[in-house]
Protein backbone atom coordinates (compact mmCIF):
# COMPACT_ATOMS: atom_id res chain seq x y z
CA UNK A 1 0.00 0.00 0.00
CA UNK A 2 1.31 3.42 -0.86
CA UNK A 3 2.22 5.79 1.96
CA UNK A 4 1.23 9.41 2.40
CA UNK A 5 4.13 11.70 3.31
CA UNK A 6 4.14 15.43 4.07
CA UNK A 7 7.17 17.40 2.87
CA UNK A 8 8.25 21.03 3.11
CA UNK A 9 10.52 22.80 0.64
CA UNK A 10 13.43 23.31 0.30
CA UNK A 11 14.08 19.57 0.09
CA UNK A 12 17.14 17.86 1.55
CA UNK A 13 18.79 14.46 1.00
CA UNK A 14 17.02 13.30 4.16
CA UNK A 15 13.65 14.22 2.61
CA UNK A 16 14.32 12.68 -0.78
CA UNK A 17 16.30 9.48 -0.18
CA UNK A 18 13.56 7.57 1.74
CA UNK A 19 10.94 8.28 -0.96
CA UNK A 20 9.86 5.34 -3.10
CA UNK A 21 7.77 5.09 -6.25
CA UNK A 22 4.04 5.12 -5.55
CA UNK A 23 4.42 7.17 -2.35
CA UNK A 24 1.82 9.91 -2.15
CA UNK A 25 3.35 13.21 -1.14
CA UNK A 26 1.63 16.35 0.08
CA UNK A 27 4.11 19.13 -0.64
CA UNK A 28 4.09 22.52 1.07
CA UNK A 29 6.30 25.60 0.85
CA UNK A 30 7.81 27.54 -2.04
CA UNK A 31 8.20 26.01 -5.50
CA UNK A 32 9.10 27.57 -8.86
CA UNK A 33 7.42 27.19 -12.25
CA UNK A 34 9.38 26.72 -15.45
CA UNK A 35 8.67 25.25 -18.88
CA UNK A 36 10.72 24.83 -22.08
CA UNK A 37 11.56 28.48 -22.78
CA UNK A 38 12.42 29.32 -19.15
CA UNK A 39 14.65 26.24 -18.89
CA UNK A 40 16.58 27.33 -21.94
CA UNK A 41 17.18 30.73 -20.34
CA UNK A 42 18.26 29.19 -17.02
CA UNK A 43 20.83 27.06 -18.84
CA UNK A 44 22.03 30.14 -20.79
CA UNK A 45 22.59 31.93 -17.45
CA UNK A 46 24.57 28.97 -16.13
CA UNK A 47 26.67 28.89 -19.31
CA UNK A 48 27.53 32.55 -18.74
CA UNK A 49 28.18 32.14 -15.01
CA UNK A 50 25.28 34.45 -14.20
CA UNK A 51 23.15 34.01 -11.05
CA UNK A 52 19.80 32.22 -11.42
CA UNK A 53 16.60 34.15 -10.59
CA UNK A 54 15.98 31.87 -7.56
CA UNK A 55 18.04 29.74 -5.16
CA UNK A 56 18.36 26.33 -6.79
CA UNK A 57 19.71 24.57 -3.65
CA UNK A 58 17.00 22.16 -2.55
CA UNK A 59 14.52 23.79 -4.94
CA UNK A 60 11.54 22.17 -6.58
CA UNK A 61 10.54 23.13 -10.14
CA UNK A 62 6.96 22.59 -11.30
CA UNK A 63 6.53 22.16 -15.06
CA UNK A 64 3.41 24.28 -15.50
CA UNK A 65 2.10 27.21 -17.52
CA UNK A 66 -0.96 28.25 -15.50
CA UNK A 67 -4.12 29.77 -16.88
CA UNK A 68 -4.68 33.45 -15.93
CA UNK A 69 -6.00 34.05 -12.41
CA UNK A 70 -9.72 34.87 -12.36
CA UNK A 71 -10.71 37.77 -10.05
CA UNK A 72 -10.21 36.90 -6.38
CA UNK A 73 -8.04 33.85 -6.98
CA UNK A 74 -4.23 33.57 -6.69
CA UNK A 75 -3.93 31.56 -9.92
CA UNK A 76 -5.97 29.92 -12.67
CA UNK A 77 -6.04 26.25 -13.54
CA UNK A 78 -2.53 24.88 -12.93
CA UNK A 79 -1.93 21.22 -13.81
CA UNK A 80 1.37 19.75 -15.01
CA UNK A 81 2.72 19.89 -18.56
CA UNK A 82 4.51 16.94 -20.20
CA UNK A 83 7.99 16.64 -18.70
CA UNK A 84 10.08 15.08 -21.50
CA UNK A 85 10.51 18.49 -23.14
CA UNK A 86 12.59 19.56 -20.12
CA UNK A 87 14.77 16.41 -20.22
CA UNK A 88 17.69 18.03 -22.08
CA UNK A 89 17.99 20.66 -19.31
CA UNK A 90 17.12 18.80 -16.11
CA UNK A 91 20.44 17.00 -15.40
CA UNK A 92 22.37 20.33 -15.41
CA UNK A 93 19.90 21.80 -12.92
CA UNK A 94 20.10 18.74 -10.67
CA UNK A 95 23.91 19.00 -10.71
CA UNK A 96 23.49 22.60 -9.53
CA UNK A 97 21.29 21.62 -6.58
CA UNK A 98 17.73 21.12 -7.89
CA UNK A 99 16.09 18.48 -5.68
CA UNK A 100 12.62 18.01 -7.08
CA UNK A 101 10.71 18.17 -10.36
CA UNK A 102 6.94 18.04 -10.75
CA UNK A 103 5.34 17.19 -14.08
CA UNK A 104 3.65 14.38 -15.96
CA UNK A 105 4.93 11.71 -18.30
CA UNK A 106 8.05 9.64 -18.79
CA UNK A 107 11.60 10.95 -18.36
CA UNK A 108 14.68 10.08 -20.43
CA UNK A 109 17.31 7.60 -19.27
CA UNK A 110 19.70 10.53 -18.71
CA UNK A 111 17.23 12.19 -16.34
CA UNK A 112 16.53 8.94 -14.49
CA UNK A 113 20.27 8.42 -14.00
CA UNK A 114 20.79 12.04 -12.88
CA UNK A 115 17.99 11.61 -10.31
CA UNK A 116 19.94 8.72 -8.78
CA UNK A 117 23.32 10.42 -9.03
CA UNK A 118 22.26 13.75 -7.50
CA UNK A 119 19.69 12.34 -5.05
CA UNK A 120 16.73 14.14 -6.55
CA UNK A 121 13.11 13.12 -7.05
CA UNK A 122 10.54 13.26 -9.85
CA UNK A 123 6.97 13.77 -8.74
CA UNK A 124 3.92 13.28 -10.95
CA UNK A 125 0.91 15.51 -10.59
CA UNK A 126 -2.36 14.38 -12.16
CA UNK A 127 -2.43 15.67 -15.74
CA UNK A 128 -5.61 17.51 -16.59
CA UNK A 129 -6.65 18.11 -12.98
CA UNK A 130 -5.70 21.80 -13.14
CA UNK A 131 -8.73 23.20 -11.32
CA UNK A 132 -8.23 20.79 -8.42
CA UNK A 133 -4.47 21.42 -8.20
CA UNK A 134 -5.03 25.22 -8.18
CA UNK A 135 -6.76 24.74 -4.80
CA UNK A 136 -3.37 23.86 -3.26
CA UNK A 137 -1.72 27.04 -4.51
CA UNK A 138 -1.84 29.84 -1.94
CA UNK A 139 -0.01 32.57 -3.82
CA UNK A 140 1.71 33.20 -7.14
CA UNK A 141 4.19 35.86 -8.17
CA UNK A 142 6.16 36.27 -11.41
CA UNK A 143 9.87 36.52 -10.56
CA UNK A 144 11.46 36.30 -14.02
CA UNK A 145 10.80 36.36 -17.78
CA UNK A 146 7.43 38.08 -17.72
CA UNK A 147 7.73 38.38 -21.51
CA UNK A 148 7.17 34.62 -21.76
CA UNK A 149 3.55 35.02 -20.62
CA UNK A 150 2.28 31.69 -19.30
CA UNK A 151 5.87 30.40 -19.48
CA UNK A 152 7.30 33.03 -17.09
CA UNK A 153 9.00 31.79 -13.90
CA UNK A 154 6.59 32.06 -10.99
CA UNK A 155 7.22 31.66 -7.29
CA UNK A 156 4.33 29.62 -5.93
CA UNK A 157 3.46 29.04 -2.32
CA UNK A 158 1.74 25.68 -2.09
CA UNK A 159 -0.04 23.87 0.72
CA UNK A 160 -0.49 20.09 0.56
CA UNK A 161 0.03 19.88 -3.21
CA UNK A 162 -0.97 16.25 -4.00
CA UNK A 163 1.80 14.33 -5.81
CA UNK A 164 2.95 10.79 -6.59
CA UNK A 165 6.60 9.71 -6.56
CA UNK A 166 7.37 8.58 -10.13
CA UNK A 167 11.19 8.24 -10.21
CA UNK A 168 13.15 7.71 -6.98
CA UNK A 169 16.82 7.68 -5.96
CA UNK A 170 17.12 3.90 -6.35
CA UNK A 171 16.10 3.84 -10.00
CA UNK A 172 12.42 3.02 -9.52
CA UNK A 173 9.97 4.13 -12.22
CA UNK A 174 6.27 4.10 -11.31
CA UNK A 175 5.11 4.46 -14.94
CA UNK A 176 7.07 1.32 -15.93
CA UNK A 177 6.17 -0.64 -12.80
CA UNK A 178 2.52 0.40 -12.87
CA UNK A 179 2.16 -0.62 -16.50
CA UNK A 180 3.89 -3.97 -15.89
CA UNK A 181 1.64 -4.72 -12.92
CA UNK A 182 -1.58 -4.22 -14.90
CA UNK A 183 -0.49 -5.41 -18.36
CA UNK A 184 -2.40 -8.45 -19.63
CA UNK A 185 -1.45 -10.67 -22.55
CA UNK A 186 -3.19 -9.30 -25.67
Amino acid sequence: MSREIRLETPLTDADVIPLRIGDRVLLSGIIYTARDAAHKRLIDLMDNNQPLPFDIQGAVIYYVGPAPAPPGKPIGSAGPTTSYRMDPFAPRLMAAGLKGMIGKGNRSQEVIEAIQKHKAIYFGAIGGAGALIAKSIVSSEIIAYEDLGPEAIRRLEVRDLPLFVINDTVGGDLYQEGMKRYAQAP
Binding site: V64, G65, P66, A67, P70, K73, G76, S77, A78, G79, T81, I126, G127, G128, A129, G130, A131, L132, A134, K135, P150, P162
Partner: peptide
Protein backbone atom coordinates in the same frame (compact mmCIF):
# COMPACT_ATOMS: atom_id res chain seq x y z
CA UNK B 1 -12.26 10.14 -8.63
CA UNK B 2 -9.88 13.10 -8.70
CA UNK B 3 -10.81 13.80 -12.32
CA UNK B 4 -14.51 13.79 -11.39
CA UNK B 5 -13.77 16.14 -8.50
CA UNK B 6 -11.72 18.35 -10.83
CA UNK B 7 -14.65 18.58 -13.25
CA UNK B 8 -16.96 19.60 -10.41
CA UNK B 9 -14.58 22.32 -9.19
CA UNK B 10 -14.14 23.61 -12.75
CA UNK B 11 -17.89 23.84 -13.27
CA UNK B 12 -18.68 25.41 -9.88
CA UNK B 13 -15.84 27.93 -9.90
CA UNK B 14 -15.90 28.59 -13.66
CA UNK B 15 -12.23 27.58 -13.87
CA UNK B 16 -10.77 25.73 -16.87
CA UNK B 17 -10.66 21.94 -16.42
CA UNK B 18 -7.00 22.07 -17.49
CA UNK B 19 -4.51 24.94 -17.69
CA UNK B 20 -3.73 23.94 -21.28
CA UNK B 21 -6.85 25.46 -22.78
Amino acid sequence: DLLLKNAQIAREERMPICQDT
